[in-house]
């Protein structure tokens, strides 16, 4: 009897270790994503579409610089630096976001890790080869059907994420991105930093000159899916809106849900309804002159549950 108890104990501790080891991988991946210079081409698959993009990420004395560029279809480009985001819209680069509120580093704080392990079972399920690199494959399996499963392939050398898939509850691929070519470190093009070309200058937008301000809006979500915790509540300017928008963010450690609340401007796109792109589901509803939008990389049922339980309570 005692033997059996000891054996069970051993099994449990092995299981716990496996989980802890997988979670340690996440920290390594997060660190590598921000601290490594790399340049590569990746394929993004979603909703029966395939897109190829190039990404360059370099770390300079003044922080991270990143350029994301589509290689097929219409020209799309995003440049990011220090929470500021520029996007190629209507043939020019426009600043679309500027967030100073987020402490960008270190990623994966201990409380985030503990939230994550409460909602997902993490398991190392083998090794594979992606873009010529050896990768550790880790599966994060949700404990309920309110979130997706995530499978990641991390480079065993640098810790960089080489491939990531989001899986639905029948193990079907919802979206997937995979590096097909990747250079880590070494001589990486930095000529685009500081935007030397005249057409490529990065102006600060008139509209989005400052980021969000933390607030207590008085809005709450009554039926927040289990495991999600509020990580942020801000009032922020948004492109093309006259009034600031309230944004509340909830996270379960691996995925997030954003709630946006703003006065309804009567735009025809504001009609109630559900739409999706890859793992992202978006749900709109206009109630009493307010436009509610819920966005998250979670199943449709989860965004619907959140929107339908938004309530105003006294501050």
């Amino acid at each position: 009897m005692r033997m059996r108890a000891a054996f069970c104990g051993l099994l449990l501790s092995v299981a716990a270790n496996a989980n802890a080891e997988s979670l340690d991988w996440l920290k390594v991946v997060a660190f590598a994503a921000h601290q490594t210079d790399y340049s590569g081409v990746f394929v993004y698959q979603y909703d029966n579409r395939i897109e190829t993009s190039r990404i360059i990420h370099v770390v300079e004395a003044d922080g991270e610089h990143e350029k994301l560029e589509s290689l097929d279809g219409p020209k799309r480009k995003i440049i990011r630096h220090h929470g500021q985001v520029w996007c190629y819209i209507n043939h020019k680069m426009v600043q679309v976001d500027s967030q100073q509120v987020r402490i960008r580093f270190p990623a994966f704080l201990p409380e985030q890790i503990s939230t994550l392990s409460a909602n997902y079972r993490a398991e190392q399920i083998g090794v594979a080869r992606v873009a010529g690199y050896n990768a550790q494959v880790i599966l994060f399996e949700p404990k309920d059907n309110l979130r997706y499963a995530h499978k990641i392939w991390a480079d065993t050398g640098s810790g960089l994420l080489l491939k990531a898939a989001v899986l639905g509850d029948k193990n079907q691929i919802i979206e997937q991105y995979t590096f097909t070519q990747l250079q880590i470190g070494g001589n990486i093009d930095r000529s685009w930093i500081g935007a030397t070309a005249p057409g490529d200058s990065l102006p600060a937008s008139q509209e989005v000159i400052k980021g969000g301000t933390p607030i207590n809006s008085g809005w709450t979500v009554d039926a927040l899916p289990q495991g999600f915790k509020k990580t942020m509540e801000i009032q922020r300017p948004m492109r093309g809106r006259r009034t600031p928008v309230t944004q509340i963010v909830f996270s379960d450690g691996l995925s997030a849900i954003s709630v946006f609340i703003e006065p309804d401007d009567g735009d025809e796109d504001n009609v109630s309804g559900l739409s999706s792109r890859g793992a992202i589901n978006l749900y709109h509803k206009v109630v009493a002159g307010q436009l509610f939008t819920v966005v998250g990389e979670v199943p449709a049922r989860t965004v619907i549950q959140v929107l339908d339980s938004i309530r105003y309570k006294d501050k």
Binding site: L68, R76, S258, G296
Partner: peptide, 25 residues
């Protein structure tokens, strides 16, 4: 909205800017 959401999503922690591909797809 996707752009505004992306900055605060944990997917940013893992894949960095590649996660932004969702917003411009």
């Amino acid at each position: 909205y996707l752009m505004a959401h992306q900055e605060f999503s944990p997917s940013m922690d893992m894949s960095g800017g590649a996660a932004y591909i969702r917003t411009v797809a």
